[in-house]
């Protein structure tokens, strides 16, 4: 069977599905000043599991928008303008949907896979843990 460490190198998804892996990657991203991308990624997963009939869900959608998309955060910088417009319009019309952040999450995930994930696997934080 795969050890946790073997799983971490398999994909970003397997790294983030492991508690120690996600924790260590978060520490790395804090140092690189881009931890917002990871929090946004988890927020999207959490949002998808929320009950659309619950009034809290709209408030969470607004909070995600305000904190990560309608700002100059690293998340907003990495998203395509059309993706941000789509989410803004949904929030404005109060039309929330479980999949409304999916495209944005995919864009952030792709960008994490291209750069910070690769850097993490050669970082001292990772190597010391190994």
């Amino acid at each position: 069977p795969d050890s946790p460490l073997a799983r971490w190198t398999k994909s970003l998804h397997s790294l983030l599905g492991d508690q120690d892996g996600a924790h260590l990657f978060r520490t790395f991203l804090e140092r690189e000043k881009c931890v917002d991308t990871l929090d946004f990624w988890f927020a999207c997963n959490g949002f998808r599991q929320m009950d659309l009939k619950d009034t809290k869900t709209l408030r969470v959608a607004k909070a995600i928008y305000k904190r990560y998309i309608d700002t100059s955060s690293i998340v907003a910088k990495q998203l395509k303008p059309a993706t941000k417009t789509f989410i803004r319009d949904n929030i404005k019309k109060q039309q929330i949907d479980s999949a409304m952040f999916d495209q944005a999450q995919t864009e952030i995930q792709t960008s994490m896979e291209e750069s910070p994930y690769q850097m993490f696997l050669t970082s001292d934080i990772y190597l010391e843990y190994v």
Binding site: L16, Q19, A43, N45, G46, R59, A63
Partner: peptide, 20 residues
């Protein structure tokens, strides 16, 4: 009532992997 920040934090935490 929870503040928006609290709700967001709970949402993030709910999606994080649990102890193996």
């Amino acid at each position: 009532m929870d503040s928006e920040d609290d709700l967001l934090q709970k949402c993030i935490t709910s999606a994080m992997p649990k102890q193996r």
